[in-house]
């Protein structure tokens, strides 16, 4: 299996090299990442799983779900590499009980870090696995953080989240203010509090999306 994968990789990589000058940078970058992952997978030992093709391994992880998959990253280094695949965690983020689609949209921009980058193909450090982990831990309170030059809001599982990290849903600053979105946000919260205080905390998650 190892040699087979390596052969596939070689044939694909030579094709990439010949066409990379004409094709778009972002898609070839992504392909390269995928290839690097597959090569690492092929070269390292995953025990009896060695014989299982990469895509079937992925399929099994998808069946296992996010929590079980993340746990498997402690098995060995090569399993960690497979489990950390961004495509897997995009799948998990998009296939939640509650739809996280809109959050996912925001995340895919926010994971680029601040300041927001204009080019979406400049992928930075934050992995979707990391984002999923943060999401999985934050059913709790809402953070609204405003300053003279910026305003942001998000949520946290902590009662007093200040000073702790959280993934924020929206960022705004002087160049790109977010008054209208914030006004809508506060108005919704206000009306929820008026109508039903107990429902409020449960509903905030949906409101934000």
């Amino acid at each position: 299996m190892t040699t087979l994968l390596r052969k596939v990789w070689e044939s694909v990589s030579s094709r990439t090299n010949s066409s990379s000058s004409s094709s778009s940078q972002s898609s070839s970058d992504r392909r390269q990442q995928q290839q690097q992952l597959m090569v690492a997978y092929a070269e390292s030992s995953t025990g009896a799983f060695d014989r299982i093709p990469f895509d079937i391994f992925m399929q099994i992880l998808k069946i296992l779900g996010p929590k079980e998959s993340a746990k498997l990253s402690a098995v060995c280094k090569s399993w960690k590499l497979v489990v950390s695949d961004n495509h897997l965690w995009i799948y998990f983020l998009q296939n939640q009980h509650e739809s996280w689609d809109s959050i996912f949209y925001a995340e895919s921009h926010l994971r680029l870090g601040y300041p927001l980058q204009a080019l979406p193909n400049q992928i930075s450090q934050l992995s979707f696995m990391h984002i999923y982990g943060q999401r999985a831990q934050v059913p709790g309170s809402v953070i609204i953080d405003g300053g003279s030059g910026y305003c942001k809001y998000g949520w946290s599982k902590y009662v007093c989240p200040s000073g702790r990290s959280a993934t924020f849903l929206e960022f705004g600053n002087i160049e790109s203010p977010m008054y209208s979105r914030l006004r809508h946000f506060f108005a919704t919260i206000y009306s929820r509090i008026l109508s039903n205080c107990a429902d409020f905390l449960l509903d905030v998650g949906n409101t934000l999306t």
Binding site: G47, S73, A74, C76, K77, M129, G133
Partner: peptide, 25 residues
């Protein structure tokens, strides 16, 4: 690891770090 015959190539410190990174799981 045992079932699939996977060799553990983490040092105890590395394994603890991976667990800490994904402690929610």
């Amino acid at each position: 690891r045992e079932i699939f015959g996977v060799e553990n190539d983490y040092t105890p410190e590395e394994e603890a770090a991976v667990r800490a990174e994904h402690d929610w799981a």
